[in-house]
Design a protein around this nucleic acid. Structure first.
Lengths: 203, 203, 203, 203
DNA sequence: GATGAATGAGGGTTCATTCAT
DNA sequence: TATGAATGAACCCTCATTCAT
């Protein structure tokens, strides 16, 4: 828990980076923009991060870490898979609503940046996804969710759906009710995942 | 059908841009990379596009236009909403499989670039989404799909889900069966959208 | 008098160059601007001039040549030095008024370009000046003009004065009466050059 | 008197620019030439000037300002108009001799650049000219100088004459005596401007 | 001769990174 | 630790020139 140098300043820089990257995008944002936003000198950033890229990496690490912890603690509860999915979902809604800029950065930059920090970004995202996969797999093995679909696919679907929903909410400047849409979305998924739901399926 | 200068060359440049942008991302890619890939001189690109940004814009315009046409023609058929969704879906799978690099660029760069060509990108994406919204709305008004959810939300969900699925397929270098996952995904959605599926919904 | 290729087209290009260079200056003007103005293709210019620089050189040569001829024929007359200076002067006024753009190019670009075609520009200008020097020297040797000043200096003075006058007239878009100013200027010079005018000179 | 960043460095860059622009001309000169001459990195120039053009503008501003001050202080003295013209003239000679490169840049580039920074250059030059106009007008109203000529025209004449004289001196690498020529020139002007000098005027 | 699409060297400018203070 | 002036590599873009038609 101990760090050399001031953890405060490091955090200020990270938060500034979130704001600036969300606003302009990683590539368009200048290191000096982040410095100004953080209220430090340009050079100071390099006392905490080796490069602009490492700043983004640090940002991912720190925040995805937090997110993964959060989702893990929910996923680890003794509730039913359905209930846990509901809670993960609403927890994520809360996160997006509380920290929309961070949500935007994690979502948008994770993709473009995949280009230059591939395995790393993939790892974090993979860790996140794995938690959901497990909940779903448990739901399937206990007959709570239909078993004729790959848990991995389902997890990706849900993540993708939610990602799109929250991103468009963030980018539309919160003009509509994310809670409500989120509930609708979850309802559709849970309905589509009921064990008996595969009966009428055509192709 | 006639253009000034060679449409061939313009297309070669666009295709090269797709390849290069897919590989490195728009910001990391150099104009000279595109030129080399296209087999033209750097300057030649500027005979067809006013700037690197306009090249990306042209790429979107041309290809999103094609995609939208495609999805529109399917959406306009006289089939049931369910059937049309199935066909749109499989059509999109085919597109992603045929032109994975293009799919990657359209998906990834549309986001990061939203930062510098906002309304434009939003328009194209909006047009695409609207087609799907209509199919869903028709399905709802004819009792084919549940009506207690917003068509717009559903469209976004499906798009997001599919987008994530295809993107991860593309980025994982086609290691798994996109067709199969796509069918599973569609099955879940259609099941979740059946008119009677809202009965067991909890919260 | 015979030239290979069309002398017409060569002249059209030269005239276009005068117009364009006067408007934008040599360095800012593009070869394609000249081509457009001349109504020919870019490449055509290179059939008549080896380079953009040679185009300027050709422009100088052709027109300074003309000017020098003109001034020489006046200078060679049997009139008194004073009268010849008057006629040279009014002739130059007529030239500036008839071809202001050419006057501007010759005046302005001769200087900046001196940087890249030094001896050449200097030669042409030297030839021009020499004619005036001779008239003045003759006036001096015949007691018509004061002899206590260098003819070369006087020629430069008169040229510089007139150059400034006409240039500011051209650049001010002909807002004032160049004829009148020219006459005033000449009056001053001639008065200052009278043999007896050195009597009251202080330092 | 305090500026952000080092005024020293700004001045070093300005002086380097004078040297380089005098040598090659503004358009042929490369920013990197100026940087090398100033002993700084290319990028450093942009810490002090927004663009190459602004560097030229800054150069004008700074130095023309100095010149105008100088001429103004002479012009404001209580001497006779004639004496003041003499002192302005000799002061300018001194300036040209002390800083020939600067004189060259101010003279030559002011013209070519008129093309891209018109009003600005015109303003500075106008301010300079106005001072001389006033001296002459005062001389006229006090009967010291002939009144049948426009003070503005006279000022332009004198400036043009002097400009030409000093420029050719600078460009000929100081091969002759500028002092002497300058005195001759002034003698001619003053003689030509004597109140009684209009008696023999022909046309 | 004439064209104008293509070329590619070169330059202005930016900005991540360094380092003397 | 912190600063921010300085650096200079790198890139987008321009445009004089060429050459296949």
């Amino acid at each position: 828990m101990q760090r050399s140098r001031s953890t405060d300043k490091r955090n200020r820089i990270l938060q500034a980076a979130v704001k600036v990257f969300a606003d302009k995008g990683f590539y368009v944002a200048r290191v000096s923009d982040v410095a100004r936003e953080a209220g430090v000198a340009d050079g100071t950033i390099y006392l905490y991060f080796a490069s602009k890229g490492e700043l983004l990496r640090g940002l991912f690490e720190e925040n995805m870490g937090r997110l993964i912890e959060r989702v893990r603690s929910v996923a680890g509860s003794s509730d039913s898979a359905t209930q846990r999915l509901e809670r993960i979902w609403s927890d994520y809604v809360a996160f997006v609503q509380t920290e929309p800029e961070l949500a935007e950065v994690l979502t948008v930059e994770l993709r473009e940046s995949g280009k230059f920090m591939n395995e790393f970004a993939a790892d974090l995202f993979g860790a996140f996804l794995r938690v959901i996969v497990e909940v779903i797999a448990e739901g399937q093995s206990q007959g709570e969710l239909r078993s004729d679909v790959s848990a991995r696919t389902v997890a990706r679907l849900m993540f993708g759906a939610f990602d799109e929903l929250s991103l468009s909410w963030v980018m539309s400047k919160n003009k509509w009710d994310l809670d409500a849409s989120g509930r609708e979305a979850l309802a559709i998924f849970l309905a589509g995942l009921r064990p008996d739901s595969n009966q009428t399926q055509s192709n």
